[in-house]
Design a binder for these strands. Structure first.
Lengths: 116, 116
DNA sequence: TCTATTGTTCGATAGTAATCAAACTTTAGA
DNA sequence: TCTAAAGTTTGATTACTATCGAACAATAGA
């Protein structure tokens, strides 16, 4: 397996983080990780196919938002809370609160349920 | 002159806001507006040509982040603080604090000075 | 060893976007 | 009425991206 690149704490850039979080599917991924904690890709209900999930998780990982840990055939994802809080205090919290109370989140979660 | 579209408070969406703020030049525009208050486009020192500024200010306006007021040949820009705070409490503050203390901001401000 | 599971890679498609230069519009003021 | 100033529009370029399906790789377990 390829080595999974994770940027150093100091190499996490605001514009990349905001870009990564500007996609609804990626917001849903992060919101779910925040809600249920570390999870395998496949355990997160998402309204897109596997290869698209890979694309999004790579975007989030390379932006420094999530950490990917390989175990067997699975990839476990978790939020890099400490690093994000260190770099951008309060940012993730306000974004997730806004997302979780949005219509957009509700619609996506429903789309994900219908895909199952 | 065309009518300038501004989304209603309730039509401001998180992903559009994050997308609009994921561009360094647009972050600089918002940061400058926050620092010096309402300003004409041309009074904000930016490292890009006029037509590109128009593009970026339209993106910010259509995302609901800034308001554009026409007066004479000028367009005065200001941040929609109340609407943003209502929709996404704490978000803009944490983004601007992160940006203002970043290397990225320093570099852009220097590039803008050299363009003058 | 064979197979099912989990996720990645690759190729294609269709859409979007950041940038610039050049031409244009609108307005203020001489 | 002319002209200069401030932005906008348009067209071109270049680059990226969200998505899917199909083929692939790696691993756990029977």
């Amino acid at each position: 397996m390829k080595l999974l690149y994770h940027p150093d704490r100091e190499e996490i850039h605001l514009s990349s983080v905001l870009y990564a979080l500007s996609d609804p599917v990626r917001l849903l991924i992060v919101s779910e990780l925040s809600r249920i904690g570390e999870s395998a890709c496949g355990d997160i209900g998402l309204p897109v196919v596997k290869s698209t999930v890979t694309h999004h998780t790579r975007t989030l990982r390379e932006a420094g938002i999530i950490r990917t840990r390989a175990q067997g055939t699975q990839r476990f994802l978790s939020i890099r809370r400490d690093d994000l809080e260190y770099r951008f205090p309060g940012l993730l919290t306000s974004i997730l609160e806004a997302f979780d109370s949005s219509e957009e989140a509700a619609k996506l979660r429903e789309a994900a349920r219908n895909e199952e």
